[in-house]
């Protein structure tokens, strides 16, 4: 399924998965996943828990090797190009006792392949801190990472990903644990970042999907790609697989932006 919005764009996709399968303990997690992202795409990845969203990000990063299928990222093999990808993981609550300052977490984004750089120069440090500034976290630079709230840590991890000056940004539920205002700010920031980088974001947030992203991919072991950012019945099925009598998903949506929600996806007609 190709993105048909720009049919004349001959540029090579930055993320290209072709029939990727992955199993964990003989349980299939990804089945024949085919996904192609072009430069400056802004795609939301949605799906139920255990649907393989995080695994898909790890396949793109080369952290896990698929059982079969072809993966090409930024024109190279997965894992060999991962330093050009900014990754904001989901687990920001790990290792809270680790003695490390916010500034040092962000500077970690400057670590790269080749020889270790030992100690960072002042200029490099200030470049890293600029990304902290961008997220409004510069006054916390000297604090220990464990002292921050979950939402603040989330921003620090995004700042760390930005410090790597990535071409692709992968975010795993970046708004979990952030209050409404923080979420709105994050969406605006992502939209701004999208002018320079391709973004793939795992999100449960329908508001974000309907107002900010350019395309949606539904993943529940199998992947379904939607070239436009509308919420379809099929997406709701994927996200809220429920039988009659349980909470009706449409009601959940009705609080959002109904006029967009009710649009039908051309593919479904």
């Amino acid at each position: 399924m190709k993105d048909m919005r720009e049919p004349d764009n001959a540029e090579e996709p930055v993320v290209e998965l072709d029939n990727v399968c992955f199993s964990f303990h003989r349980r299939p997690v990804l089945e024949n996943v085919t996904l192609s992202l072009k430069r400056l795409d802004f795609t939301a990845l949605i799906g139920p828990n255990g649907g393989g969203k995080t695994t898909l990000l790890k396949v793109i990063l080369g952290l896990v090797t698929p059982r079969s299928g072809r993966v090409r990222i930024l024109g190279g093999r997965a894992g060999e190009t991962s330093h050009r990808i900014g990754y904001v993981p989901q687990g920001v609550d790990v290792n809270l006792r680790f003695p490390i300052s916010v500034a040092d977490v962000v500077s970690m984004g400057l670590t790269g392949p080749g020889l270790p750089r030992r100690w960072l120069s002042r200029r490099e440090k200030s470049a890293a801190l600029a990304s902290l500034d961008r997220l409004g976290m510069e006054r916390h630079a000297g604090r220990r990472i464990g002292e921050l709230s979950g939402g603040q840590r989330q921003r620090v991890f995004l700042a760390r990903a930005l410090a790597t000056q990535p071409e692709i940004l992968l975010l795993d539920e970046p708004t979990a644990g952030i209050d409404a205002r923080g979420q709105a700010e994050m969406y605006l920031l992502l939209r701004e970042l999208n002018e320079r980088m391709t973004i793939l974001v795992v999100s449960h947030d329908l508001l974000m999907i309907s107002t900010h992203v350019k395309s949606v991919a539904c993943l529940n072991r199998r992947l379904h790609y939607h070239g436009q950012a509308e919420i379809t019945d099929e997406m709701l099925e994927t996200m809220y697989p429920c039988t009659e009598g349980e909470v009706c998903p449409v009601e959940l949506i009705a609080h959002g932006l109904p006029h967009r929600v009710l649009q039908h996806h051309p593919e479904d007609e």
């Binding site: 330093h83 290792n95 977490v105 970690m108 984004g109 790269g112 392949p113 270790p116 030992r118 100690w119």
Partner: peptide, 23 residues
């Protein structure tokens, strides 16, 4: 430790991120 400090720090704090950075 002195020569590899930033790699050691990255590996110790967040091994996954270190691998993404191709440490």
């Amino acid at each position: 430790v002195a020569l590899q400090y930033d790699w050691i720090l990255a590996m110790s704090y967040d091994e996954e991120f270190a691998r993404v950075r191709r440490v």
